[in-house]
């Protein structure tokens, strides 16, 4: 038995494509879609995979990253999947890719207008931990009633002196829909705002799609006396010396010695090559 190009049948692709167009037309709004059971497990990127499959054409160059790295096993596996079912070219270089599927990071290299970033999303509903009932959260979005989230963030400040959310930090898209940026570190949130590239989000298990169009306002929630701040390190990347990238902390010996390195492996190797040149 042979599968269709990019695995999904054409009816399914049309369903996804219609949903994606509505997602782009209503920035930040979660469009329910008939998520299919994919040959990879739910929670491992089935939403992103379905979005990528609906987009992918033979001329695309695909990059897949997990935690910012191209060579983590799940990223390798998803890239292998698309190579097998669509035969498309793949790359590890951000600048060469037309489509980038990602889990938990936005590349450090600025994206362009001719690129599309596809996010894997475990929980699309930013209010879910505050209100588990879908019928309720739908109503709160309809009313743009995001008091629950403001109260939660404010209680953090009252209790800890800080907003105690470090990743999947909620954003307001186009001033209307409260949206989950997926579990990217809040370090990456500013890259969402007025991005030249289209950003699409797929939640397979929860059966929702949403989008942030290019050049769209994306505001990380904050208070006047507690402005939004991103993570910063005292260290620089020990491999490339970058002082502006997101760093992974690595334990290098059994005495607990740490070293800090770029999470974006393509950015890091590019930076090293530049330094050598």
């Amino acid at each position: 038995m042979t599968y269709n190009f990019a695995f999904l049948d054409e009816d399914t692709k049309r369903m996804l494509r219609r949903a994606l167009l509505k997602a782009v037309a209503i920035p930040g709004y979660q469009v329910p879609f008939g998520s299919r059971e994919m040959p990879l497990p739910y929670g491992w990127g089935t939403g992103g995979i379905q979005v990528t499959a609906a987009l992918l054409g033979p001329d695309d160059v695909l990059k897949v990253i997990d935690q910012g790295a191209d060579d983590t096993t799940n990223a390798v596996n998803i890239r292998r999947f698309f190579h097998r079912v669509a035969g498309v070219a793949t790359t590890e270089h951000t600048a060469e890719a037309t489509l980038i599927q990602t889990r938990h990071r936005i590349p450090e290299t600025s994206l362009r207008e001719d690129q599309i970033l596809v996010f894997q999303v475990p929980e699309p509903e930013p209010l879910r931990t505050l209100e588990p009932r879908e019928a309720e959260t739908r109503t709160l979005h309809a009313l743009a009633d995001y008091g629950l989230m403001h109260v939660k963030l404010y209680e953090d400040i009252a209790q800890y002196g800080h907003i105690a959310t470090s990743y999947d930090y909620p954003v307001l898209v186009d001033g209307r829909f409260l949206t989950s940026p997926s579990p990217i570190p809040k370090f990456d949130n500013p890259k969402l705002d007025r991005s030249p590239a289209l950003m699409l989000f797929g939640a397979g298990r929860e059966k929702r799609l949403y989008a942030i169009p290019p050049y769209t306002s994306v505001e990380s929630l904050a208070f006047d006396d507690h402005p939004f701040e991103i993570q910063r390190w005292e260290q620089q990347c020990e491999l490339c010396g970058s002082g502006e990238s997101y760093l992974d902390e690595v334990v290098v010996d059994d005495r607990g010695t740490r070293m800090f390195v770029c999470s974006d492996t393509d950015f890091c190797s590019g930076h090293r090559m530049e330094a050598q040149a």
Partner: peptide, 20 residues
């Protein structure tokens, strides 16, 4: 070529919707 023709048209429609 239904598979590839609709794919290439869709990508333009998506960009059209994303860049009004």
């Amino acid at each position: 070529n239904p598979v590839f023709d609709s794919q290439s048209n869709f990508r333009e429609l998506l960009q059209a919707m994303a860049r009004p």
